[in-house]
Simulated scan of single mutants.
Amino acid sequence: MKVAIIEDEIPARQQLISLLKKLRSDIEIVNESTSVKEAVAFLQRAPVVDLLFMDIQLNDGLSFDIFKKVSVSCPVIFTTAFDQYMLDAFRQNGIDYLLKPLKKADLAQAFTKLEKLKSHFSSDIVDALRSVQEGQSGLRKRFVAKKGVSFKSVPVDEIQYFFSEHKVSFLVNREGEKLILDKPLTDLENELDPDVFFRINRKYIASISGIESYRSFEKGKLLVQLIPAPREEIIVSQEKASVFKEWMEK
């Protein structure tokens, strides 16, 4: 397995290399970059790389800047001392997000996730993820969502509703599974069929099949019952109540 490392801290880079050698005998380190500029120059040569390790805060910017300047065609494992970049990481080719100092067990789990992705998708991992996530038309047919350490492909017609909690987006399928998504609800709303999905409020987008019933609530609002039932009351505002009723009757 050909691996490239983008890390500007020498001790952190040495620790990562040491852990990699202990975990995998087939690892070949093909490049060590210390900045966005060096990484872009390396990736522009279109080298064959199976996996990238990226620190997020580099000496000349964030590693996310790399994706703006060059196409990255392999999975990425992000390593950082900060947890606030997690959603941005998974919007790129990120398959895992490891906090420093790195632990052997976490790194081993990341490789397990990589192997599961390989077995799940018969073609290239990144191409498969992108084709599923971006879709071939304006409206999404399926989503790739995170479940534990793995990723799961979920057809749109199996999604009951989406919701946001602590700035993280989730989908809930017919089986009641709650899976993590890498986009805010505002972006998701633009990719969904408006005849099938409705933005109930700031926190929820529901499919027609995910709505069991609704009833009048205080001051012209509506109280919506979703399937499976969430832990909180789902309210449609007075301003959106008439639009919601019209949508339900389509």
Rank of each mutant, 00 (worst) to 15 (best):
Q57G: 02
D26F: 00
K116H: 14
I77L: 08
D55M: 00
M54D: 00
L188G: 03
G148E: 03
K69A: 03
K219V: 06
L98V: 00
R45P: 01
S131M: 05
S213V: 09
V172S: 07
I235Q: 05
E7F: 00
E232K: 15
D127L: 13
F170L: 10
S164F: 01
W247V: 08
V196A: 07
V48R: 01
D50A: 05
S122M: 09
Q44P: 10
F82N: 09
V36P: 02
K116P: 00
G138P: 05
F121V: 09
E191N: 03
V72L: 06
R231K: 13
Q92W: 10
D26G: 00
V243P: 00
K167Y: 09
V76M: 04
D96K: 13
F42I: 05
G210S: 11
I77C: 08
N190V: 01
T79C: 15
R24Y: 01
E38V: 13
E158M: 06
V70H: 04
E9N: 08
D106K: 14
P101Q: 13
G138A: 12
P194D: 10
D60H: 02
V236A: 12
I66D: 03
D8F: 07
A4F: 01
D60Q: 03
K250I: 10
E249Q: 15
E32H: 09
I10E: 10
V144N: 02
K21R: 15
G220E: 04
E115G: 03
L16E: 04
A39I: 06
A81H: 07
T80M: 11
S209H: 13
S207L: 13
F64M: 03
E233T: 14
R140C: 09
I66P: 06
S131C: 04
E239A: 14
L23G: 10
I227W: 01
I66Y: 05
F111G: 10
R24V: 00
A81Y: 09
Q160E: 04
P155C: 03
R215C: 13
T186H: 07
S137V: 09
D55V: 00
S216P: 08
S33W: 00
T112F: 05
H120K: 13
V126T: 12
E175H: 12
V236T: 04
L19I: 05
P101N: 13
I95K: 12
A39S: 14
S35M: 02
E239Y: 09
I27F: 10
R24A: 01
D127N: 12
A241T: 01
Q84A: 15
I66S: 03
R140G: 08
A105P: 00
A81C: 13
L223A: 07
V172L: 07
M86S: 08
K147Y: 09
S123N: 13
D55E: 06
I200R: 06
K183Q: 12
I208L: 13
I180E: 07
F121T: 05
T186K: 15
V72A: 04
N201Q: 04
S164G: 02
N201F: 00
D124Y: 07
V168S: 12
H166W: 01
G94K: 11
K178M: 05
K146W: 02
I10D: 02
L16I: 06
V72G: 08
V3F: 02
E218I: 15
F121P: 04
H166A: 15
A89S: 15
V156Q: 03
D157P: 09
S73R: 12
A206K: 03
E232M: 10
E189H: 13
P75K: 11
E249D: 12
S209V: 02
I125R: 06
